[in-house]
Design a binder for these strands. Structure first.
Lengths: 144, 144
DNA sequence: GCATATTGGTTGAAAATGTAACCAACAAGC
DNA sequence: GCTTGTTGGTTACATTTTCAACCAATATGC
């Protein structure tokens, strides 16, 4: 029977609820202050952290579908947070680069993110936090 | 500067990616086989596990907004997986009950869920899995 | 060179979600 | 009784997401 199974401990359910709670709480920073959507913040982040990338690069690294990237890039470009530079080597590709304004937002959000992360992690012992991050990385990685 | 912060270890990001990977993988069971959405599966689950509840009850327990519940209940009713019984004590409330068909789907999905969960958990030591579940529960709980 | 397939990225329509307004049943004050 | 406020639940509309079709640039086979 199904009585020995409880959704309260079901990992996909727990993961989703935890992700939603944490995500909602952090979204304040990029949404309220900069009117950004989650995908926009992620794209911004990747560019700030890893330098100029193409849309496909970001999609691959972050596991985001290209249509979502495309729209996030358009939104960020409209906000003047990034510029697109068509590559000479292959004129289909465009390199995305943060503008100074985009870099400033990135810096600000990184600070907020680091603080937020620290506050979350502070609820557990360092060992548990490390275990948590490790397990999450494993689960997030595409199945073997 | 923002160089000491990496999104790869940022908990909201990790949580979201892990939740998405796990959720996508499990969704096969309820989506492909029964044409259900995630909220539908959750509502079904709560009814199967905890007996007759009202829409508001489920929303409170699962942290789902009432419009999502409302639509999920309508979809489940259309599939004849549940029936609504207006309460005499308060005719605004409707008790939701699984039909035999709904119960059968619930049983099947519980089996699949238990197997899926076991497979996920098997990637870690029992201690780490316990830590993972505990941390996720804490994070998922509304902030104090 | 030319035809075909592939890749980077965008666009449009359909599905799903979020927000707010809404309706009916109840409760409280008077 | 009548007004006002609250609650359970649905509906309408705007925003997002998803899916498929699409266009242009490049690569491949001949």
């Amino acid at each position: 029977m199904a009585d020995d199974f409880d959704i309260q401990t079901f990992l996909p359910y727990l993961l989703n609820r935890a992700a939603e709670t944490a995500g909602q709480a952090f979204q304040q920073h990029y949404k309220a202050r900069y009117g950004m959507l989650r995908t926009e913040w992620r794209v911004l982040f990747h560019l700030g952290r890893y330098g100029a990338l193409t849309a496909t690069d970001i999609g691959t690294r972050a596991g985001i579908h290209k249509t979502k990237i495309s729209r996030a890039v358009a939104a960020l470009a409209a906000k003047r947070y990034l510029v697109r530079v068509t590559r000479d080597s292959d004129r289909r590709q465009e390199e995305l680069r943060l503008t100074p304004a985009g870099k400033a937002v990135f810096d600000d959000l990184c600070k907020a993110a680091a603080a937020f992360d620290a506050k979350l992690a502070a609820r557990f012992s360092p060992e548990d936090t490390a275990t948590l991050r490790r397990c999450l990385s494993v689960i997030a990685a595409p199945v073997e």
